[in-house]
Nucleic acid binder design. Sequence first.
DNA 1: GAGGCACGTCAACACCATGTCGAGTTCCGT
DNA 2: ACGGAACTCGACATGGTGTTGACGTGCCTC
Lengths: 220, 220
Amino acid sequence: MTPARTATGNATGRGRRAARSVGDERELAILATAERLLRQRAFADISIDELARGAGISRPTFYFYFPSKDAVLLTLLDRVIEEADAAAGDVLDRLAEDPRARWRELIGRFHETFGAHRAVVLACAQVRGTNAEVRHLWAAVLERWVQAVETAIEAERRRGAAPDGVPARDLAIALNSMNERVWYATFAGDGPAVAERDAVDVLRDVWLSAIYRDTDPPPA
Amino acid sequence: MTPARTATGNATGRGRRAARSVGDERELAILATAERLLRQRAFADISIDELARGAGISRPTFYFYFPSKDAVLLTLLDRVIEEADAAAGDVLDRLAEDPRARWRELIGRFHETFGAHRAVVLACAQVRGTNAEVRHLWAAVLERWVQAVETAIEAERRRGAAPDGVPARDLAIALNSMNERVWYATFAGDGPAVAERDAVDVLRDVWLSAIYRDTDPPPA
DNA sequence: GAGGCACGTCAACACCATGTCGAGTTCCGT
DNA sequence: ACGGAACTCGACATGGTGTTGACGTGCCTC
């Protein structure tokens, strides 16, 4: 068996330690090292040894804090998701005020949050293929966002601002998928991509067209 | 240095051997084994040894045929892309005949091709994060498709069927990105996804809305 | 028909990253 | 000052990758 494992005061519960003490800063140091290294190279090219050295500990000690390299990324992803949720706020509830402006605000906030943590986002997208935990966490988060958008689209249809068409859920999935992939390409910078400063406007226009069949739908 | 390396009569040039002979069937056997194994588990969980055994050769011998596991996937991807290009044909040139039907035809053909080789497509998406060659090949192919769509959108705008809006290239990128991600989710089956039989219709409607701001644009 | 050469094959090896074990050390509360 | 939890790491086991070098084996040539 491995040492300690209670994970009590731990905000995310992804690491394996209890609250207070020396190790807290070590755990943070590992996280910080990971985010720094990710800005330089791909996740797969970072070894556990580097993460450990960067945090001033030996490789075996790394395992005291995290069960694997992937767990570190998962913790980083948790934070970004939390930040994105906070940034999105209740914009969707105020859609009818001014649909064009509100949708842009929503998309723009995600764009900013992901852009600020592009290294983490990119790494997760890359690892998603091989790591089931990242895949499931991302799937769960996406499901939440899809449902929120689905509900918003239905509300807009109900008030007569948006025409009927394909099921709101399918539309929500397609649009969220588009954003994800477009951001990935934009932030990764390889392959055809929309310029970073145009991305939000392009995305918004496709969303408006798809939902309202109009790029400037009427407010309530 | 490694043995043989001319790669002459080799259709794709991804392997390392010259034309004819015993080895030809071995190379094909490796490819077939890979595609079969890919239907059962993720690319990362397949070892070179399994590929070799499956083709009736030893692991070192595998290296006689392919420089790495990734090269096998690359060859498989080449084939799928070729098939997709063939399936797409000249549909885009006949858009004005009946835009709604033609766009559906185009999207539907890609859907069928990718669906028929989902194991390869999924594996490539997963490996793209870690393998630069797959990433570049995919980027190049996408660029071609994006350009074709961009040209088509511009033609539709010129003939007055589609309204002006965001740059045609950006629109083409966004729509192609959407398709890619939606298909990935649909074929992978984890996370929110559009049902396989609805995917083409949903995608088509978003394309039509985004390009024409109308789900049934007029023919020439 | 013998010699040469390109094709094809593999045992054995070197390497490197991951993960584990067990024996420490340090720190804190009592 | 002591007992246990937090923390640390040297040394090892494992498993996959890629390389080396020597060995068949068929076929083309002269």
